[in-house]
Nucleic acid binder design. Structure first.
Length: 318
DNA sequence: ATGGTTTTTACTGCGTC
DNA sequence: GACGCGGTAAAAACCAT
């Protein structure tokens, strides 16, 4: 890919905290009003952070004195890490109004341009990495997963890249798989159906990537604990804590009686919630359909599982 | 690929409000 | 009659081999 003859592009410099230090030389970072970018006072490094956030982009387009910044609006979309966010730096040593730059400014611009080309030509891996991390971020927030899960997901993804696991599978599939694995490892599991819903990749392909990655990376991801689904289900269904406690006990007793072996954790959790509302609230319980809808477990499965749970429960007359 | 198991889909019957 | 539930049969999905 050849450089544009007269122009270079760069990742947009995103406004970070104004008091940050330069990662390269520890010089102070200064927002450059002329360009609307933040750059290091020492080496001219334009700061561009790795993750895609929803933060606004700051630019000063028409203010000749450059003191005022205008909010241009949110980035076009979170799903495209680059489009619409790139900054183009002209080759002319002049500001936006065509006025010549002073020697100081000129020098600074020269440095900015070299850095920009570096960012651009840095290996494609860097680019795909950003895309993947952006995707992870998007899916994670769609799934309501906390920050630390995104981080472990990115770690998993990076490791997958390092181990050359990418060839043959799509970036997004591996990203989805990494997130799925991270959620399970962090004890805030999301099942495959949920993951597939927010992913561009279908379920089958995610599992394939997931299996491959976990095997190659030796990630010991244990089967999800049904209890980990419980709190989420309970709150999604607007139930009280009493139900959750009861449900948890049902799950424990099921475990003691080995009724749960071979059964999907989600099914058990869903069934436990239903059974618990039945036991706690009696007549005005939740319907199986309601539970089925928020848990993504079919009514039939809820039925069969919750009968098992009740059978294993001591306090249940039988 | 195969076979065993679980889950889902689709449909039906029963009791109740 | 609609609704919640239970049961069933067949298909699909899953998993270990």
């Amino acid at each position: 890919m050849s450089l544009r003859d007269t122009q270079t592009r760069t990742e947009s410099a995103r406004r970070t905290a104004e008091t940050d230090d330069c990662p390269e030389c520890d010089g102070r970072l200064e927002p450059d009003p002329q360009r609307g970018e933040t750059a290091c006072a020492e080496c001219g490094l334009v700061v561009a952070d790795d993750e895609i956030d929803g933060g606004p982009e700051w630019r000063d387009y028409d203010d000749s004195d450059g003191t005022e910044r205008s909010r241009v609006g949110p980035p076009l979309t979170k799903t495209r890490h680059d489009d619409g966010l790139s900054t183009t730096i002209g080759w002319r040593d002049a500001d936006a109004n065509g006025n010549a730059l002073g020697p100081r400014q000129r020098e600074r611009m020269r440095r900015l341009r070299t850095w920009n080309t570096r960012f651009q030509t840095r290996d494609p891996k860097e680019r795909s990495l950003k895309q993947a991390l952006g995707e992870i971020d998007r899916m994670a927030s769609a799934l309501g997963l906390p920050e630390h899960v995104r981080e472990t997901a990115s770690v998993i993804y990076r490791r997958a890249v390092e181990e050359d696991l990418l060839p043959g599978r799509s970036i997004e599939a591996v990203a989805s798989a990494a997130l799925y694995a991270a959620a399970r490892q962090s004890d805030v599991p999301r099942n495959l159906k949920e993951t597939a819903r927010v992913s561009r990749i279908d379920r089958r392909e995610i599992v394939r990537a997931y299996r491959y990655v976990t095997r190659e990376l030796g990630l010991g991801v244990e089967p999800a604990d049904p209890g980990d689904y419980l709190t989420r289900f309970v709150s999604d269904l607007g139930l009280d804590g009493g139900v959750e406690v009861r449900a948890r006990r049902l799950l424990e007793e099921a475990r003691d009686e080995n009724v749960d072996v071979g059964k999907s954790p989600v099914s058990l959790a869903a069934a436990a919630v239903y059974a618990a509302t039945l036991l706690v609230h009696g007549a005005d319980r939740l319907t199986q359909v309601e539970v089925s809808e928020v848990t993504d477990v079919s009514e039939v499965t809820i039925r069969t599982r919750y009968r098992d749970l009740l059978r294993a429960d001591d306090d249940c007359l039988l």
